[in-house]
């Protein structure tokens, strides 16, 4: 589904990604871990199509097509979703209007029928139950005045409504207490299927107790320094990131 080959990207002349290689198949859950500043958000954001980052080398294909050519909206329409580390507040646009517009933009691009307000509400309510989200969230401005936890839950709620095929979650666990973390994980697990893949970016192992990954990759200085199974996350939890750095330095 996703093939990342030797990806290099920079922002303002500063190289950040320095040769990422990663293959993700449908049905898989990949965790991307790594210390702060290692490039996790940059990778997630480059995949979502942010133009501030310049790709200087390498390629990314999605369903066999070049992804880097496509503007952000076409990636979303093709089924890529990024749950932001820092969701943006958009005052004056209600959450429900925003999400219906987004859903219909995606359906329109796929030649599917548009949902009217009533059908949309039915769908939204159903997904809100899944994430134990309060009804009032729909009428509030997008992320406007939301607590950190509410913002993260709103991201996963959007994901549950938009039903992406490749979901990228950037530190969705940060700022969540254990109860909220469990709810979010349940929501994500409910979406797991053989047709869908997840890229779960996280700094801590904790989330991975609830969303169990098939693969774990450790990002260090813009490269994947180590890959393994779910036990790698536990090892990192125990030993921290420094031994990876030592390994990289030694090689």
């Amino acid at each position: 589904m996703l093939e990342i080959r030797n990806l290099h990207a920079r922002a303002d002349e500063t190289p950040i990604l320095k040769g990422i290689n990663l293959t993700v198949k449908a049905g898989e859950v990949h965790a991307i871990m790594g210390p702060n500043g290692s490039g996790k958000s940059t990778l997630a954001t480059v995949l979502a199509g942010r133009e501030d980052y310049e790709v200087t080398e390498g390629s990314v294909t999605y369903d066999g097509e070049d992804l880097l050519d496509k503007p952000a909206e076409e990636r979303a329409q093709a089924g890529i979703f990024l749950a932001f580390q820092y969701p943006v507040e958009i005052p004056g646009v209600s959450n429900s209007y925003f999400l219906r517009t987004a859903l219909n933009a995606i359906r329109e691009a796929r030649g599917e029928e548009l949902l009217d307000a009533i059908d949309f509400l039915e769908l939204a309510r159903d997904r809100m139950k899944l994430l134990k989200i309060d009804d009032s969230l729909l009428t509030r401005g997008v992320n406007e005045g939301f607590s950190g936890g509410e913002k993260k839950r709103n991201e996963i709620f959007q994901m549950a409504v938009l039903q992406p095929r490749l979901a990228i979650m950037d530190e969705t666990d940060s700022g969540l207490d254990i109860d909220a973390l469990k709810i979010v994980a349940e929501g994500v697990n409910a979406l797991r299927s053989s047709k869908r893949a997840f890229l779960v970016v996280t700094h801590y192992q904790r989330l991975l107790n609830y969303i169990v990954p098939d693969f774990v990759h450790v990002l260090h200085d813009g490269r994947i320094a180590k890959s393994g199974g779910k036990e790698l996350a536990l090892e990192l939890e125990e030993k921290g990131y420094s031994w990876i750095e030592a390994e990289v330095a030694a090689s």
Binding site: A48, A72, E73, F84, V88, A102, L162
Partner: peptide
Amino acid sequence: ALFYLRSRGLT
């Protein structure tokens, strides 16, 4: 905000 909206499929 523009990127956020576009990442959700809006042109």
